[in-house]
C-alpha cells in the first residue's frame, strides 16, 4: 500500500498547522512581550503566583491519591465479576463520564450549598449546618467525582488481562490471599495504575472550572490563572502563554517521574 502514502498528506499539513504551530506559538508568546520583542519578564513575574502553583499541585495530588484509593478496589472487584456483570458495571462507570462535566459539577453545587441538600438534611435531623461550598475540600470532591472513571478504567483494563494462572501458582507455592494480592496482582497492574494516575493528575492540575464553581474565589488554580489571561479582565496572552508553558513542563516532569513514557502502554489509555 506504499502508493497510498500520499493520502496522509492533508492530515500532515493539518497537524503541522493546528497542533505543532500552536504549541510553538505558546513558546513564542511566552518569550515575547505585547509588541513582539524578546523578554523573560513573563517568567520573572511568575514568582507572585507561587501559591497558586503549589495549591494546584497539592489539590491535584490529593485528588489523584483519593481516586487511586477508591478506584483500585473497585477495578479489582469488577475484574473478578462475571463477564456479563462486568459489562454492565463498566457501562455504569463510563456513563457519567459522557455527561456534560459542567452539569455534573453544578449538581454538586446544589448538594453542597449552605442551604443545599446536605445541610437541609442535617437541619432536619437536628444537626448544625456545615460549611462545605467554596472550600478546598469541595474542589477536591469535584475533581474526584469528575476524574474517578479515568482511574478505574485503565486499572480495570490491565486487571482483566491478568493471567489467572499466576495467582493460582502463587497460591500453590504457599502465598496467602493477602500476600498474593500485594506481591503478584498489584505489581502486575502497575502499568494501569501509572496511566490512571496520569489521566487523573493531568486534568486535575489543569482544571479551571471545578475550582471556580465549587471553590469560589478562594481556591484559584493554575487553570483559572491561564483562563484569566486569555479571556478574563487581566488580558495578557504573553503571561498566559508563560504560565501554560510552565504548567506543561510540570506535567511533563510528573509524567516522567511516573515512568509513563517507559511503559509503552499508551494503549491502556484508550
Amino acid at each position: 500500500m506504499n502508493k497510498a502514502r500520499s493520502a496522509a498528506f492533508p492530515y500532515i499539513l493539518w497537524s503541522v498547522l493546528f497542533t505543532v504551530l500552536p504549541l510553538l506559538l505558546v513558546a513564542y508568546f511566552a518569550f515575547t512581550n505585547g509588541s513582539g520583542t524578546f523578554t523573560l519578564d513573563n517568567f520573572a513575574n511568575l514568582g507572585e503566583y507561587t501559591a497558586v502553583f503549589v495549591r494546584s499541585l497539592l489539590l491535584a495530588l490529593i485528588s489523584t491519591l483519593l481516586c487511586f484509593m477508591i478506584g483500585y478496589p473497585l477495578a479489582y472487584i469488577l475484574s473478578r465479576e462475571s463477564a456479563r456483570r462486568q459489562q454492565i458495571m463498566i457501562m455504569l462507570v463510563m456513563l457519567p463520564m459522557w455527561m456534560n462535566f459542567l452539569l455534573r459539577t453544578y449538581a454538586w453545587l446544589t448538594i453542597l450549598e449552605n442551604n443545599g441538600l446536605i445541610n437541609r438534611l442535617l437541619e432536619f435531623l437536628g444537626f448544625a449546618p456545615l460549611h462545605m461550598i467554596n472550600t478546598q475540600g469541595a474542589v477536591v470532591l469535584g475533581m474526584v467525582y469528575n476524574y474517578l472513571p479515568y482511574m478505574i478504567l485503565p486499572i480495570y483494563t490491565v486487571l482483566i488481562k491478568l493471567d489467572y494462572r499466576l495467582i493460582e501458582a502463587a497460591h500453590d507455592l504457599g502465598a496467602n490471599p493477602a500476600k498474593t494480592f500485594f506481591r503478584v496482582v498489584v505489581p502486575l497492574s502497575m502499568p494501569g495504575v501509572s496511566s490512571g494516575i496520569t489521566m487523573v493528575f493531568m486534568p486535575a492540575v489543569s482544571t479551571f472550572i471545578i475550582s471556580k464553581m465549587l471553590g469560589g474565589g478562594s481556591s484559584l488554580m493554575v487553570g483559572d490563572l491561564i483562563e484569566m489571561q486569555f479571556l478574563g479582565n487581566a488580558y495578557d496572552p504573553n503571561l498566559g502563554a508563560a504560565i501554560s508553558l510552565v504548567m506543561m513542563v510540570i506535567i511533563l516532569i510528573s509524567m516522567l517521574l511516573m515512568g509513563f513514557f517507559d511503559s509503552e502502554d499508551k494503549a491502556v489509555i484508550m
Partner: peptide, 24 residues
Amino acid sequence: LIMNVTYIPVLSPEIITGVSIMLL
C-alpha cells in the same frame, strides 16, 4: 513520528490545546 504528533492533542491537557489554538 506522525503517531507521536497525533497523540499530542489526545494526551495534553485540554486547556493547553484550547489556549494554543486560540493563540494561532
